[in-house]
């Protein structure tokens, strides 16, 4: 009886903590929909406005920022999927000389991520004359050691009988990769996509330093420029509205696919 009571109490406390975790989002959402005076007064009122969003949308080129971010996110993941699948297949199923050394090389990328190499990579991009381009934003992330290790793990669990049967049927190894391994590892690709997309969507410092024109800036950089263009505290409602604009797409996708995302994450072999 006693254990039942304590576990109920624990459950209740954790629910309270979960509610607490939502406060920052709620606070910002409410602010974004209130007229400025009402938001600053802090008194309870039912004032409601969409004016903040209208101001934000007309004050800064958020439509361009949106398109840039979507383009970057989609291209990076598409290329990563290709390069990581290929490399993972080699590590998992094509024994070759020097594989353990090459494996170690990829491990270095996990230990020293591109995020901390901003300054030297800026120089590399300058040497390639790719500063202030969308391609330049994407390049350092087109090979993902994380994706390679993740997929290698899953590819190893796929029975070799399937591969052998396909080879006898006359498939080439290349076709085996895309017709057998690729579809069978689908849940892992979902988890990989979630990690890659949220990473690129949220990436900030790198695009900040290498872009200096509106046509190439992603959402995060646009948001920071927008937020810094005001005296702090004066334009809260607008900054809240802009922030909400930036975070809503990912949060919506997550809410809709919440179960699949978390389940595929849990069962994807990430440990």
């Amino acid at each position: 009886m006693k254990t039942k009571f304590t576990s109920r109490l624990g459950n209740l406390l954790m629910l309270a903590l979960a509610a607490f975790w939502l406060i920052p989002l709620l606070w910002m959402t409410v602010t974004a929909f209130r007229p400025r005076q009402a938001a600053l007064s802090g008194l309870f009122s039912l004032d409601f406005t969409l004016g903040n969003f209208a101001t934000v949308w007309s004050a800064a080129p958020f439509a361009t920022y949106y398109l840039n971010t979507i383009l970057i996110v989609v291209c990076v993941f598409a290329v990563q999927m290709l390069t990581a699948s290929m490399a993972a297949f080699a590590f998992a199923r094509v024994p070759f000389g020097g594989s353990s050394i090459v494996f170690l090389l990829f491990l270095v990328q996990i230990m020293i991520p591109a995020d901390v190499l901003i300054f030297p990579n800026y120089n590399v991009l300058k040497q390639l004359s790719l500063l202030d381009t969308k391609l330049g934003i994407m390049l350092p992330f087109l090979a993902s050691a994380f994706g390679i290790f993740l997929l290698r793990q899953v590819f190893k669990t796929i029975p070799t009988e399937l591969e052998e049967a396909a080879l006898i049927e006359g498939c080439s190894p290349w076709q085996v990769l895309w017709k057998i391994y690729f579809p069978l590892a689908r849940p892992t690709y979902v988890a990989f996509a979630l990690v890659s997309i949220s990473y690129q969507w949220n990436n900030f410092l790198w695009p900040l330093i290498i872009t200096n024109s509106v046509e190439n800036r992603p959402l995060t950089v646009g948001l920071s420029i927008f937020a810094q263009s005001f005296e702090i505290g004066v334009q809260w409602t607008e900054v809240s509205a802009a922030t909400l604009l930036v975070i809503t797409p990912l949060l919506l996708i997550f809410l809709v696919f919440q179960r699949q995302f978390i389940e595929s994450f849990i069962h994807s072999g990430i440990k």
Binding site: T83, M86, L105, V108
Partner: peptide, 21 residues
Amino acid sequence: FAWLLLLPSLLFLLLFTFYPI
């Protein structure tokens, strides 16, 4: 075949991890 599969990833790895280091 293995090295061909690894080539694209290795290229980006060398260019944006090892070369900058």
